[in-house]
Design a protein around this nucleic acid. Structure first.
Lengths: 251, 251
DNA sequence: GAGTTACCGTTACTTCCGGTAACACTAATC
DNA sequence: GATTAGTGTTACCGGAAGTAACGGTAACTC
């Protein structure tokens, strides 16, 4: 694949960009169809059914996705984007500690409430024969937990406390919210607000206890002034290179 | 085929019991073979390979397990038993609140540390084509969380507090430990004891905060005298009947 | 307008694997 | 010897993932 382009000065690859954008759009279109097929036929959809839902036949699907897991990953990525776009402002925006925790928790719950099929598809890994190693939900949790760990670690260090507990703490918090959300989504025996409140309290208690054990006491109702540096970001620093294309239409 | 049994008074079905025990033993033998095959061939083992590992061919396997998910469930059950047998004493035995939390958390972590392949098999649901609806890990978490919810709810009610938060709290706690354990198992960057300590602290802070917000303050280093009634048990009240065999060796 | 590129789309196939049918043998009980 | 409840085999079925091979079309270059 190395430099197979004929390099016809610069006119030749004018198409390239167009095609690339087209492929991208087509993939998204298939992801949409997959989600539709998923809600229609349940989690055991076959590739034929997905293709039919998209109005094409199987080989077309396979031109855009290497195999079923690839499609699965793309569907998961859709969910990830959805969630991250909501979680990010909740975490980075200013406010009192209590508010920030609440916003984060509640925006998560709101997201899974709004897209329950997508959520279930991602967490129960129904579908996909082989992959295993690339699990969307685990990966997402890892990303969010890392972000939280940095956030909390910065605060702990700012208070001259041992920051070693930040990482397990972050993973614990993420797992906690996920598990509680899963339970809540299944049998909605309380309002979302109540659950968000409970979870926020629990998280706050844990943070507060951690700080108190280091001799620090802060007021959950007073905004913290500490600015994490460098600024917080949710995405992994993997797909860096040149990503000037992070502007995308969002319906 | 109705009433093909000759009902030879009562001597006839003396065999029955023997066969039943035999079948039971055979199933366990196959579960062992599955676990061996699993660690040998990775999570994508085929039924042929499992059968070969057990020294037989496929149809024999299918005499004892309805399908692949059935086998999967049996393997999962093995893990569940293992875990529950360790968790139960940790939860029911006496001690200070801190001790009890610590024991429960640490015995969980010890278990997954000792059987990492089994753990991974159960949580990443690699394997199994269709089932989905019967997920071991989720079920286990539900059972443990229900037990915890009852435990905490009893305490809350004993203190005349609102016990509505017990259930989400319990699911949150379970998810927390599981997520932290998962993270720890993957990259063991701290000792088990450290993690158990951190988690115990977090859980205790959450409990303490919950109680304090209700005006109650208890000392984590002083045993609680409240005896849950009826006595705590971890298993679901499904396979009841006659279970006189709850006396079991504990290594 | 011929050639090239990079898609669109189809039908018909292969492969793999979970699961089954059919058949033969053995040990215990009555 | 009949019956029951197992042991085990080889050879097959069926469904779904994935592929081969074929033909069509729009855009751009020369």
């Amino acid at each position: 694949m190395a430099r197979a382009v004929k390099r016809s000065s610069d006119g030749g690859d004018a198409r390239r960009e167009r095609w690339r954008a087209h492929r991208e759009a087509r993939r998204e279109e298939f992801v949409d169809a997959t989600i539709r097929a998923l809600t229609k036929h349940g989690p055991d959809v076959g590739m034929d059914e997905i293709a039919a839902e998209a109005g094409v036949t199987k080989p077309v699907l396979y031109r855009h996705f290497a195999d079923k897991s690839d499609l699965y990953l793309a569907v998961g990525q859709r969910g990830t984007d959805l969630l991250m776009n909501r979680l990010k402002p909740a975490l980075v925006d200013e406010g009192t500690p209590y508010e920030r925790i609440y916003r984060a928790v509640d925006s998560y719950l709101a997201t899974i409430e709004e897209f329950p099929e997508l959520y279930h598809f991602v967490v129960r890994r129904s579908f996909t024969d082989k992959p295993v190693e690339t699990d969307i939900a685990t990966e997402d949790k890892r990303i969010i937990a890392n972000t939280l760990a940095r956030l909390l670690g910065d605060y702990l260090r700012a208070f001259d406390m041992d920051s070693g507990g930040a990482e397990p703490w972050a993973h614990a918090a993420v797992g906690m919210v996920q598990a509680a959300g899963d339970w809540w989504l299944e049998r909605q025996s309380m309002t979302r607000q109540s659950l968000s409140d409970y979870l926020t309290k629990i998280i706050w208690f844990a943070v507060d206890g951690l700080l108190r054990s280091g001799g620090i006491a802060i007021d959950p109702q007073v905004p913290l002034s500490l600015q994490p540096n460098p600024p917080l970001r949710l995405v992994e620093p993997d797909t860096q290179g040149e990503d000037g294309d992070d502007r995308r239409a969002r319906g």
